[in-house]
Design a protein around this nucleic acid. Sequence first.
DNA 1: ATCCCGAGGG
DNA 2: CCCTCTGGAT
Length: 208
Amino acid sequence: MNRKRTQKILDILQDAYPQAGTRLNFQSPFQLLVAVVLSAQSTDEQVNQVTKRLFSQYSTPQGMAYLPMEELQELIKGVGLFRNKARHIKALSEILIEKYGGEVPHTFEELIELPGVGRKSANVVMAVGFGLPGLGVDTHVHRVSNRLGLVDAKQPHQTEAGLKAQIPRQRWGQAHHLLISHGRAVCKARSPQCSFCPLESMCPKNID
DNA sequence: ATCCCGAGGG
DNA sequence: CCCTCTGGAT
C-alpha cells in the first residue's frame, strides 16, 4: 500500500537494530538449510545448541543421508518436532546427492520442492545463503507487519506478497531481519513493549 | 483444520 | 497451567 511509509519504518528499524541478521550458526549453504529446517517453531538458541553437536559429526548431505534415522533423531532431539525434522533432513540430503550433485540449489522453485522446505525456509536460504532476493515470513514478520499496518493479511504468504510488493528487492533480506529483531525485542507476541517502541507514534495499534 | 513437539517464560 | 518460538506436510 504505502511504500514511503514502509521505507521510513525500515529506516527507523535500521537505526534501532543496526546489527540485525541471522543468529543461526552455519558454515555452508547446506548447514544453513539444515539449520533453517530445524528452526521451525523453535528458538535459534535451541537450534544452535543442536547444530553444534550435529555439524561437528555430520556436516554434509552425504553424512546425513546415510545416517540411521534413530541416530539423527537423537542428535537433533532438543528442538521440537524432531521426528519430522529428522525425516526431512535425511530425505532432502538424499535428493541433494541424487539430483544436485550434493549442492544446495540456488533457485526458490528448486528449494521449495525439497521436503521440509516451505516458502519461509526457501526465502531464507535464498537471501542468507546466496545473497539472492528472498523475504521469509515467519511468525515475527507476519505479526509485526500486520500490527504496523504494512499489510492486512491472514496468511503468511499474503504478508510475503504484500511486503515484496512495497519493498525493493535489494532490501528484502534486510527487511526480514529487521522485522524479526523488532518482533523479538519489542513487538513481542505476548506482551509488546509499546512504550519502548521507536514506531509507537506511527503504529495503528497505538490508540492513545 | 490438524498434527508434530522440546524448552523457556509468565 | 497456557503461550510462544525464524513452519511444513497431510
